[in-house]
Write a protein that binds this DNA or RNA. Structure first.
Lengths: 155, 155
DNA sequence: GTCGAACTACGAAAGTCGTCGTACGATGGC
DNA sequence: GCCATCGTACGACGACTTTCGTAGTTCGAC
């Protein structure tokens, strides 16, 4: 079963590279240009957190980001009429550390954008961007989330 | 950041339980009823491989199954006008062992169905089932696969 | 009967992922 | 200035995923 064109091997949906305003994690992708960070002439960190540009968003990374119940919940609530929400507003059943991890996965995949507001981090869906890149994908996922029962299938 | 309703924890998109006709893998989910296995009165294994029933297919498992470049390639080729294909026909750039692993992930998530034909394993998309469960999802993914460049984003 | 081919179970190795606790920084209120 | 709150970096842990090689099963051709 060998031959054919090479596929990307093993680099399981690498999150899109983002532009960093702080020291990146060791495993964070290298920063790139074209980020949507809005900066003044000051050197102070921007309130917007680094996010991938439109052409850096990959289907595998988006699907991987959505293939988790916690992240599906976050995306569902962001879609339910809220233009933006702070992390604490979600009432997630995991610790703050884990929540921060999930928000970062969503942001680095290009599913959400975040900016600071005081001590809070406001998150919003990149609805138009995802609709432009993968028409109908987010709507299908949100429709499915709205009616799928929570939790694993019955024993 | 605690509170709110419990989400399924950690059970990372558990593949839907399937009905087995052979000894399951140690980590395979327990067999369930309602499988689409077509059997005669004989005890011989059925040519159809076990697959989850419609109500056992979970969004997270489907998204997880699709969040991999090898499996996206398989699904893309199955969608490209082929009603069914044998495993060897895909020319995947991984070994037979790994290919078998990927086909099993797709089948257990409910994305494809498989049956034996001689020494071959014929695979087909569960197009109507997925359209019924998650309208527009598969079409969006296939449309995106058709135009997304292969491989990781440029350095 | 043997043989070749397709396919898989099993186990191992390496890497990834989700979880958490701890310690810290940034912000706003006082 | 201190304090409370929000959020995060870091590291650790356990489980999961992807990869492959090996040995085996099943099927069809001869």
């Amino acid at each position: 079963m060998t031959g054919g064109t090479e596929l990307p091997t093993r680099e399981r949906p690498a999150p899109a590279p983002t532009t960093e305003t702080t020291a990146p994690r060791a495993d964070a992708p290298a920063p790139t240009t074209g980020t949507a960070v809005a900066d003044g002439p000051t050197a102070a960190p921007s309130p917007a957190l680094p996010e991938p540009a439109l052409d850096e968003i990959r289907l595998e990374a988006v699907l991987h980001a959505l293939a988790d119940p916690v992240r599906l919940r976050i995306v569902g609530e962001l879609a339910a009429g809220h233009s933006e929400m702070s992390c604490i507003a979600f009432g997630l059943p995991v610790t703050k550390s884990t929540s921060t991890h999930h928000f970062r996965v969503l942001r680095e995949a290009g599913v959400i954008r975040q900016h600071r507001r005081g001590t809070s981090r406001m998150s919003a869906l990149r609805r138009e961007d995802l609709a432009a890149l993968f028409p109908g994908l987010l709507d299908s996922v949100l429709a499915a989330v709205g009616r799928q029962p929570a939790g694993p299938p019955p024993a």
